[in-house]
C-alpha cells in the first residue's frame, strides 16, 4: 500500500476530468441550439459522454 501522503490528490487532479466532461457537455448543449444536422450529432456525442462514462465505471469495470 502506498503511503498516505502520495495518495492525496491535488484539487487539479480531482477536478480535471469532471471539468473536461462539463466543458464537453456544455459544448453539446449549446451546439444543438446553433444549427441542425452536424450540430445535432455533436450534441448527441457530447451528451452521451457522461452516460457512457457512468456505465463504464459502474457496470463494465473489471472485477477486482
Amino acid at each position: 500500500m502506498m503511503s498516505r501522503k502520495s495518495m492525496h490528490r491535488t484539487l487539479r487532479q480531482i477536478f480535471i476530468a469532471p471539468l473536461l466532461v462539463a466543458i464537453v457537455s456544455t459544448l453539446g448543449l449549446v451546439g444543438a441550439l446553433v444549427g441542425d444536422g452536424w450540430w445535432d450529432a455533436l450534441a448527441w456525442v457530447t451528451l452521451a459522454v457522461p452516460v457512457v462514462l457512468y456505465s463504464l465505471f459502474i457496470w463494465w469495470r473489471k472485477p477486482n
Partner: peptide, 13 residues
C-alpha cells in the same frame, strides 16, 4: 466532492 475524492481516483467504484 473535493475532500471526498482526496484519496480516490476519478470514477472509483
Amino acid at each position: 466532492y473535493a475532500p471526498s475524492m482526496r484519496k480516490l481516483s476519478f470514477g472509483t467504484y
